[in-house]
């Protein structure tokens, strides 16, 4: 009688465990942030700065990811700006656009018409760009990073441009602008 009850108990436990076992596809979603640094120092009211994407940093971050698994896709989660305003700055307000240059030399907008009052800027604060983003540039940047994930030497340089105006026009605009973009990878773990 006791043996029968023991067997019954084992069967019940085995049934519960088996019911809990299912096969699942598991993905990891590591994220990292990269940025372009622009130094604005203008006295004409016209802002135009060209920088190159830090491909080496992006490749380093991708290299950390591929150790853990196979990258299925890469997307851009979001963009934000950081500012450092120097004491020499006399501009009150600034409006800027940012572009990424494709392989044919076309400038594709990443964001447009971002305006801010310089006196309201706080150093260290992240200013989101979600309302100003443009699909052409965002998807081009995404395409560049996906290509780097497949072949780290795909690009020698990728040009990113920030341009706009400072007000009043005849005073010195002196500030650093960092455009951060957060990258998210979908990874099949090994």
């Amino acid at each position: 009688m006791v043996m029968k009850k023991t067997i019954f108990s084992v069967i019940v436990i085995a049934a519960l465990i088996l019911a809990a076992c299912q096969s699942r596809d598991l993905f990891l979603f590591p994220a990292f942030t990269n940025y372009c640094h622009f130094e604005i120092d203008e006295t004409t009211g016209v802002i135009y700065e060209e920088e190159t994407l830090s491909i080496e940093d992006i490749n380093d971050s991708i290299g950390d990811i591929v150790v853990d698994g196979l990258i299925e896709s890469i997307d851009l989660e979001g963009f934000y700006l950081n500012f450092t305003v120097f004491k020499e700055n006399a501009a009150d307000s600034v409006t800027v656009d940012a572009y990424i240059q494709d392989t044919l030399g076309n400038n594709l907008a990443v964001f447009k018409n971002y305006s801010f009052n310089v006196n309201d800027i706080e150093e260290g604060v992240d200013y989101p760009l979600s309302d100003y983003l443009r699909e052409d540039g965002v998807l081009e940047l995404r395409s560049v990073i996906n290509a780097l994930a497949q072949n780290p030497s795909q690009y020698e340089r990728v040009v990113v441009i920030i341009e706009g105006n400072s007000f009043p026009h005849d005073v010195r605009a002196r500030m650093d602008v960092d455009m951060h973009f957060r990258i998210n990878a979908k990874v099949s773990p090994f």
Partner: peptide, 16 residues
């Protein structure tokens, strides 16, 4: 999907 071609992942855990 987010604004301007961005995409935000909410990892779905194990979908159970």
């Amino acid at each position: 999907g987010g604004p301007g071609g961005t995409k935000y992942y909410f990892p779905g855990g194990l979908d159970i």
